[in-house]
Design a protein around this nucleic acid. Structure first.
Lengths: 154, 154
DNA sequence: ATGACTGCAAATACTTTGCACATGT
DNA sequence: ACATGTGCAAAGTATTTGCAGTCAT
């Protein structure tokens, strides 16, 4: 097997390994590596971007494995999928409660460390619906695009 | 040209025609037809599902045109795109403020006639961010899947 | 030892594009 | 009249699948 310490410091993985195991999933160097990539640059990359970054230090890794790893990380609740527009799904390793800000102009995504709790929202769901969590996406303009819009407005 | 009244009652289209024109887009039978399909069964269909339904009474319509029409409807703000999972984008013609309930089990989508207003949310965005709207997606189990889950739990 | 995971390649699903012709304004 | 929209086919992305071999437990 591939030396796993080549890819991620042991300590960072404790939580990950525990969660994978707890979900009946196996701990593999690829899964650790994909998770580390997400943690290193928390910029909500697509599967393709993760693949490119992963290959840098693990050239043998395949796209299918990247998807498999991302799915495993989502299943064991170490990563969230983020779907904001018609483009590819993005992946977010920030599991603290937060919302996403999506710039409708340039497509960049930012974490906003604030959420709507089910209590706060007081959603009245019809009978039978079971609420698990609320996913809040803020649309607007990022500072860059906002500045550009202001410029062209004069 | 194709008889347009074959596809949608005139009255329903007033608003649509006004909006298309106002956005510098043209009124075409295809756009009216696609809009009517969305209004008839507000079940958040994918582009592919819209295509299949559209063909029933307009057999010549093409997939490219369906995408074009959906884009036009989104641009003139008669329809919203809904992205909830890795699958295809869905389309929603309900322009009243509302949220979406997504069943994580079966993937069905329901409108919830309630939203989080920017005021209510009190989002503190970092300097420079311009908030345009908040998009709230409630994840959980629909009544059917919730009932099934309860059954298998005993 | 065994089932789960990986890598590869091929298949499928989703979306966009180029172009000739038609149509809305 | 002329730009915009349509239909077709082909190309481009995004994601999934089948399978032989490998690895985690």
């Amino acid at each position: 097997m591939v030396s796993r310490t080549k890819y991620a410091p042991i300590e960072q993985d404790e939580q990950l390994n525990k969660r994978l195991t707890h979900s009946g999933l196996r701990v593999t160097p690829q899964r650790q590596h994909v998770h580390e990539i997400l943690m290193t640059k928390m910029d909500h990359p697509t599967a393709d971007q993760v693949f490119l970054r992963a290959k840098e230090s693990m050239p043998e890794i395949s796209m299918a494995t990247v998807y498999n790893c991302l799915d495993a990380l989502v299943k064991c609740e170490m990563v969230k999928q983020v779907n904001l527009d018609r483009g590819a799904t993005r992946y977010c390793p920030n599991m603290k409660p937060h919302s996403h800000f999506y710039c409708d102009e340039c497509g960049s995504v930012y974490d906003i460390l604030q959420t709507i709790s089910p209590d706060q929202a007081k959603f009245k769901l019809p009978r039978g619906f079971k609420l698990q969590n609320i996913d809040t996406n803020i649309h607007g303009l990022c500072p860059d695009c906002s500045a550009k819009a202001k410029q062209s407005a004069n």
